[in-house]
Design a binder for these strands. Structure first.
Length: 406
RNA sequence: GGGGGAGUUCCCGAGUGGCCAAAGGGGGCAGACUGUAAAUCUGUUGUCGACGACUUCAGUGGUUCGAAUCCACUCUCCCCCA
């Protein structure tokens, strides 16, 4: 099975600009493709992971990836999929974020001579002159068409600033630029980028009379239609300091039954035959599939060692009780104690398990907190210095474990 | 530039002088049931020294015994006309 067919079989391909040509190009390893990443935060997310995996798959099939850091486009802000305006980021923030992205990407993709390359569109976008740009590419865009694009339609009600409206033009310019200077003949990305990406092919066609290609991948959504890779509106980060490997593992370990196989198929590199087999699993057997999913992804993102730790930690906790080895831990200091002890409420807040004492109080009152396997029922419970020196394991709800040590 | 409308707690959205820490829904969290799943049911969801106190309804300043609610100015957004 060739790469195009594999991507298809995995359910990854959402849309392509020209199926025949795209298939031939990537199957033949003739694509130099780019995927753009706007650096709106200081870490990549589980959502980005999918496109990184795509990059890897295409690279393994002999194609040349370009990871494009959006140092320039982030200054504009992509309105796609947003109902409100993005907060404006400063140059400094963006540079910082770009540096973080670079580090994370290097874990997945090999960069270097003849391998993948990394570019930053700040390098060419920031030099542009307004009037020159308008004359050069502005004439190639039809406002009428742009307004028809999905990504803007959503914003017609809530308002769309001229700044954001130009995002598509910047992105198109990237493609145009790299087509000319880097031999880039294809752009990949999430399906929400479809209209932005087509802008680029359109520009290339008009300016150069040549064809470039676009391939988008299906956005990973759960059975309810929500984007995956988020918990309570917060992204699942690839940075271990923002989302610990344990939490990352747990996120995937806890996906719904209905979504496991889809996730394995789309996100992991397991052979399709194996996935096919798993798709027959039912009921609680799916728990095994969830473990596989969680392990595979954690391994790719955080490495084998961390993945094992996360898995063992989780198994130990959920089956036999407390194996505290790889648990998220909070280190207290003497200053956190009052008269040699600390109350349960303070402890919960310090450990980040409750955002306020009020919340902690509720948790305890509703029977959601255990310490060292013992349910806490008294909101006035305290823990002594000696206990803390031993280390205590707090369990919040059924799945959240946290160790606190002095 | 002219006219009209809106800004409420995580989100949507009620509330138009005291009965408002603010209806309802969503989401979150917890409990029951389970398979670390889903669905369902229940509780909970501003902060704290907690049957009380304190801080919130875009911002600032007023009126009032008392303001999310009234007045003035400011900021932001939307709609219509140009």
């Amino acid at each position: 099975m060739q790469i195009y067919e594999e991507l298809q079989a995995r359910g990854l391909i959402a849309q392509v600009s020209n199926e025949e040509e795209v298939r031939e190009t990537i199957n033949g390893g003739k694509a130099t493709f780019y995927i753009g990443y706007d650096c709106t935060a200081d870490s990549l997310t589980a959502g980005h992971f999918m496109t990184l995996a795509l990059m890897k798959r295409l690279q393994m099939a002999g194609n040349r990836p370009i990871a494009l850091i959006g140092g320039g486009t982030t200054l504009i802000g992509d309105p796609s999929g947003r109902t409100d305006m993005r907060p404006m980021l400063t140059r400094k923030d963006i540079d910082h974020n770009a540096a973080c992205f670079k580090k994370q990407m290097e874990r997945f993709i090999e960069f270097g001579e003849g391998k993948a390359q990394m570019l930053n569109n700040a390098d060419w976008l920031l030099e542009l002159n307004y009037v020159d740009l308008l004359r050069e590419v502005g004439s190639c865009f039809s406002v009428n068409n742009m307004l028809r694009a999905d990504c803007y339609k959503q914003r017609m009600e809530k308002g769309l600033s001229f700044l954001e409206f130009n995002y598509m033009i910047m992105q198109s310019y990237d493609f145009y630029h790299m087509f000319q200077h880097c031999g880039c003949n294809m752009q990949c990305g999430g399906n929400d980028q479809w209209s932005n990406m087509l802008g680029g092919t359109e520009l290339i066609r008009r300016k150069l009379g040549k064809d470039a290609h676009v391939l988008t991948i299906t956005l990973l959504t759960d059975s309810q239609g929500n984007k995956m890779g988020k918990t309570a509106g917060n992204a699942v980060w690839l940075d271990p300091n923002k989302t610990s490997p344990f939490d990352f593992y747990q996120y995937w370990r806890n996906v719904e039954d209905a979504d496991v196989i889809k996730c394995i198929r789309m996100l992991t590199f397991l052979p399709l035959e194996e996935v096919e087999e798993m798709s027959h699993w039912e009921g609680s057997q799916l728990n095994k599939a969830k473990e596989i999913l969680a392990y595979q992804l954690t391994e790719m993102v955080h490495g084998e060692e961390e993945a094992k730790k996360a898995q063992e930690g989780a198994q130990a906790l959920f089956s036999t009780g407390s194996n505290t080895a790889n648990m998220p831990t909070t280190q207290l200091t003497e200053a956190d104690l009052t008269e040699g002890s600390i109350t349960i409420l303070d402890l919960l807040v310090k450990a980040g398990l409750a955002s306020s004492k009020g919340e902690g109080r509720r948790l305890v009152q509703q029977g959601g907190v255990s310490v060292n396997e013992e349910k806490i029922t008294d909101i006035a419970a305290t823990f002594s210095e000696a206990q803390l020196k031993e280390g205590v394991v707090i369990k919040k709800g059924k799945k959240v474990f946290h160790k606190v040590i002095l």
